[in-house]
Design a protein around this nucleic acid. Sequence first.
DNA 1: TAGTGGTCTAGACCACGTC
DNA 2: ACGTGGTCTAGACCACTAC
Lengths: 267, 267
Amino acid sequence: MAPHSRYEEIAEAMRRRIEAGEWEPDARLPVIDALAEEFGAARNTVHRAIGLLETLGYVAATRGSGVVVRYGAARARRPRGNLVKRNLWLRGYSFPSASAGEQWMKHGEADNTPTAITDERVAKLLNVKVGEVVPRRFRVTGPIGEAPFQINVSWIHPRVAELVADVDKNPAAGEWLYRIEVGGHWPIKWFEFIRARNATPEEAKLLGIRVGKAVMEYTRQGWSGSDDKPVEVTQYVIDGDRVESVQVLERDESATLPWPANGEAES
Amino acid sequence: MAPHSRYEEIAEAMRRRIEAGEWEPDARLPVIDALAEEFGAARNTVHRAIGLLETLGYVAATRGSGVVVRYGAARARRPRGNLVKRNLWLRGYSFPSASAGEQWMKHGEADNTPTAITDERVAKLLNVKVGEVVPRRFRVTGPIGEAPFQINVSWIHPRVAELVADVDKNPAAGEWLYRIEVGGHWPIKWFEFIRARNATPEEAKLLGIRVGKAVMEYTRQGWSGSDDKPVEVTQYVIDGDRVESVQVLERDESATLPWPANGEAES
DNA sequence: TAGTGGTCTAGACCACGTC
DNA sequence: ACGTGGTCTAGACCACTAC
């Protein structure tokens, strides 16, 4: 029954106590030294068990204050979909993967300075070379009053850079995607790639989560409607614990095969 | 520039070497002791750096053989969708989140024995109590000839247990979902919940991945069309490194607002 | 300032793959 | 049997929070 390692056993024992209610949500756990003595293990081993419980979403540890139970925390539900809505009044767009509607920028961390592309995959999707400097838009967002849980980064192809050059100085001009479309690239077509992966150290710091925490990554590639080449790549990195996509499955009866003519039925 | 800890610095240095091609894909890295000496750090610290690189998908470590570069590995693409297809000939169903089509059961790990429900969320979705014993179907699947990368588990509500009791002995009778529908619960309606989270120790062992690796979790809840209560819950847990969902975004022009009557345009 | 979690070390031992 | 990665220990020191 126990092919587990010791730290997994300890994590398992602690998990059971949490689920049994012995340690209630928002309550503080005993300090690590006390737990180490109780379990008869080294401090490091208990610390590792806590790290596991943290990535699994059972507790949250804060240096200086303690380890707190985070079991049964609420999670934002975001309807899944593939419909892009345009709002010509605001000269903006609405992507289903991007927002739950009520999000806000945080910290003033917005950064619109052009940057060299380091990621090989992004370079390929945008059809530029690694190291090339392109316009970039960077945001960390989340609901008002709560911790941010989403990183938004967009890279723009150099050949349309002029079209979005004054977007920040002149907000009434509309979003940069709108500028690109009316600038001669209508209609933009998008592909979206969805992955689950582990947070990098940089992302973990931005989102206030532990390194290695699971995140959802949406990567969107926008193609020009005129020259049929990529014009933008946008990536959303979302704390996996904070959101959940929901979808109603529909029946495709058109794809239903008829009963076989010579009925092999036997029910 | 370096708010990193030492193990993150070492991981960063190793990552740069991999991306620079100094350590090529499928090549073996130096042994940990050698790396520890080179970086002037303890063995444990280097080991932790390697663990980080492993969860980020850059390397794969195997006890007894070594650490191998896994950069740029292929990934299966699975079209995203919400259309459930019925196949009356096979008396089965096709869910977009479930399969890439060519999957196969692995290891003979299939397990159809009834089991007590331990997960509180699953219990709630199936509308039963935690600890209640219900029919369960368990599979670990993946493409032929490759390592499995997906865990499929289904729980069935006790009130429809009789309808699926003989499914295993009589394959020609069709899938258990088909049996439930023709047994008086047509049409079943489904909701699907999608999350990214970290693999538990059990899941990691089944999928052959490191504990804490990011996985996609699809949870499907099926409602009876007759008594409007849940009849089944199915969960897919998929190695995040092995699949990627792809989707074409469509324009919803019906939602587009008209230009304002008093044009504030200035482009 | 005291107490908390987080990191690092040096060394030991274990589990597993390879030869 | 050997060499590999994985775990555990005991102790030290650091970074951060709360008081």
